[in-house]
Structures are given as C-alpha cells and as structure tokens.
Design a protein around this nucleic acid. Structure first.
Lengths: 216, 216
DNA sequence: ACCTGAACACCGTTCAAGT
DNA sequence: ACCTGAACACCGTTCAAGT
C-alpha cells in the first residue's frame, strides 16, 4: 500500500521532518530566537501548531536539529596531516564562522550543546588527528572542549552585542564599550584564540604542568 | 520568608528591590531557571505578579541583578603582587566556584553577560594586576575575556549535564558520556584550564606566534 | 510609596477526531 | 500518514485604581 502519491490531484502539500527543520532555521535567521515560537513556525508552514508535534518531539529537539544543521560545516573538511594545534585553530575558525552564519546561532547551539542534544563539533575530528600524531585521545578531548566552550561563549556574546547595537543602545545596560563596533568587527576574537592556541602548542611541546609524555 | 521587622501594627510587609532579588536567587536555587517565572516569584513573596514591576524593570533586569549577586565573590579578594597568569587562574577558579554555588548559575550569568547587563567579572581586577606588572591593558582584557568565556561556557555545560543526570538519563539525548560522572566531578575542567593558563604564561614570556623576546 | 485586579497578547503541549 | 480543532495550563507585561 501507500503507492507513492505525493500530492495527487493538487491536495495540500505534506511536510517532512526536514522541511520543518529547514523552515525553523530560516525563521530563526529572520526573526531571532526569542521570536521563534512553535506557533509562528506553524503559521510559517501553513499548518496548525499541533501538526508540528507529528514531525518533532518537542521544541528542544527541534532546536537540536537546527543546531546540527548550523554545525554541519564544522565537522566537514579535514585534510589530515596537520598538527593538533593547527587543526584546533582551523576548527575554531570554522566553528566561529558557522555560528555567525545564522542569527542567534551561538545561543541555539550553546543550549543544545549544554543539554547534550548535539555532539560537540570537532571532537571526533581532533581525536582523529591526535591518533595520527601519536597524541593521547584525552588530550584531544581537552583541546576540543576548551576550544568549543571558548568559541561558543565568545560568539554568543559577540552576536548578542551585535543585535543589541542594531536595535539601538537602549535602557539600563552597562553600555557596549564604545571602542570600534563596525571596523573589522573582530572584538578580540583572534587575540583570544591566539592565546588558547599558544597554550595548545606549549602543552604539545611538553611544557605543561602535567602532561608527562613529550613525544613518542 | 522575610524575617525583618519593619512591620509595626501588623500591616502587610513592604518589600524592597533587594528583597525581590534575594527571593529570586533563593527561588532559582530551589526550582531552577526554567521554573523561575515572575508569577511564581510573586507567589513566593505573597504578592500579585504586577507588584514586582514596581521594584524591577522587567525579568531580564531582575536576572541581571541576580547575576551580579552570584558574581560578587569573584571580584572580591585580590592580594596584588601576583603575576598575571597566577591571577588569571585564581579568578577562573573563583568564577567557577561562584557559578556552581547556585542552580543554573552559569546559564543565568551567561545570558546577562551576553546581553551586556553585567560587567564581566575579573576584568577590572586583571587590569589592575597588569598595570602593576607593566603589561598592557589590552593584554589583560584579552586574558579576562578568554578566561571568562571559557569558564562560563564550561560551567554551563557541566551544570546542565548534572541536572540532566539527576533527573534521570531520559529520552533522545546523545547520552552523557558514561566515563565517570560522580568521581571528583571535575569533568576535565582543570585540564582545560591548565591549557589556557599555559597559553597565558607563554604569551607573557613573549613566546606567542613570534618568538623574539625571551623575557623582559 | 507600594500594591491589587483585571486584562492583553501571547506561550508549549496534548489529544481526540478527521482524511 | 499527516493534520485539524479545541482545550489545558501556563507565560511577561501594562495600567487604572486603591491605600
């Protein structure tokens, strides 16, 4: 039974789970996380709110799926053959770019990550590089966690400040420091990242407090 | 709830803004952020929801005040006379402890920070140490930002995983990695922090990407 | 100065019932 | 298999009015 018949005779189009996630990502980028409600999403899809719950368990799982979409480019490329510190920097930069690619991307990913509903990006990738290089997997995990938390936290802050600036510097805030706000718009991200990568390099060279194995 | 006796003649007790923030912090610790609503808080205070808006501009500002309370111990102690890297580690540890001291503390602080409604802790402190040591203020800022974002991000994740574990490992999650979950319960925090501090130390020694200056 | 009462414009989610 | 309709149990916030 169920012989194909996707939309015979011009009936209302049926949606897949993927369509719902696509629509959610698009709506997120347009209206921002605070205004991304299940009801608005339903309206956007031309459907009753309750219909969404056929495709998706609940809002958090939907946001997790959206997060996975946002993070897709991070786990993509890897040439292998690089050292762990170089790989870590590349992952960090890709993660940063991916989070910035959608409105409130960092916040969405941050909470899915915290809830354990998406795999930390880079984790598997860096582990592979570590193996190749004869470094321990737990060192790779430490590096991956450090980079992930730093980048997500930093980008979250960055993104929020941008939308605050866009909306106009309004009531009661501590006031976004009036240095440059639209120059290269890096906000010190690369400086901070350099710091972390310097740590990775140092540790890899055997200069840390507690990583006894210099090489093997 | 509120002990104080400014209540002569048995009239209904009046609340100050501080009372409201106190109650919010207490309720946060008891029920968690998702269940901390203005209506529940009002009930907790024996007051109509609308009454809260006399004391507080809105929910976000209330949470900012709660965040400032949580962060108070971080900016407290400073002995001076330490190097920047040692100071950075101490700040990181105090921040970590303070965030863990209240349920969902990291999440609350994270969003207040991102919205620019609280000053980043440590910022001023580390700047002072930098001046004392003849380091640049912008280096101190970079260090402060790096440490802050890392610690807040990491602790957020840590705290969320704890309450997930407490509630029982339920439906659909990626599954909290089944290593140890109740050992020292450090989750790699100190290992990651070591990495960052190694970066700070390296940069202070002039050993960043360019290696010209061995010391100063 | 501090609070009530009532309302406005929303939420996420469930569930029987339809096709 | 996919969706509607209606309901449940909530939200944050505003504002006139009371004391």
């Amino acid at each position: 039974m169920i012989a194909d018949d996707s939309n015979r005779g011009g009936r209302a189009p049926r949606r897949s789970r993927d369509d719902v996630v696509d629509a959610a990502l698009e709506l997120l980028d347009r209206v921002g996380l605070p205004d991304l409600s299940m009801r608005r999403l339903a309206e956007h899809l031309g459907v009753q709110p309750s219909a969404l719950y056929w495709h998706v368990e609940n809002k958090q799982q939907l946001l997790a799926a959206v997060s996975a979409r946002i993070l897709r480019p991070v786990s993509a490329a890897d040439e292998a053959g690089t050292s762990l510190d170089v790989a870590a920097r590349e992952v960090a930069v890709r993660l940063h770019d991916s989070l910035l690619a959608y409105r409130d991307g960092a916040e969405v990913v941050s909470s899915s990550l915290a809830l354990g509903l998406v795999e930390p990006p880079a984790h598997a990738h860096l582990r592979a590089v570590a193996l190749e290089r004869g470094e321990s997997a737990s060192l790779a995990d430490t590096i991956a966690d450090t980079v992930t938390h730093f980048v997500v936290g930093f980008t979250f802050h960055q993104q929020q400040r941008r939308s605050a600036d866009a909306w106009g510097a309004a009531s009661g805030g501590v006031a976004a420091s009036p240095e440059r706000i639209a120059a290269g718009d890096d906000d010190g991200f690369t400086a901070a990242l350099d710091l972390i990568i310097a740590g990775v390099t140092t540790v890899l060279a055997g200069g840390a407090t507690q990583y006894p194995e210099p090489r093997r």
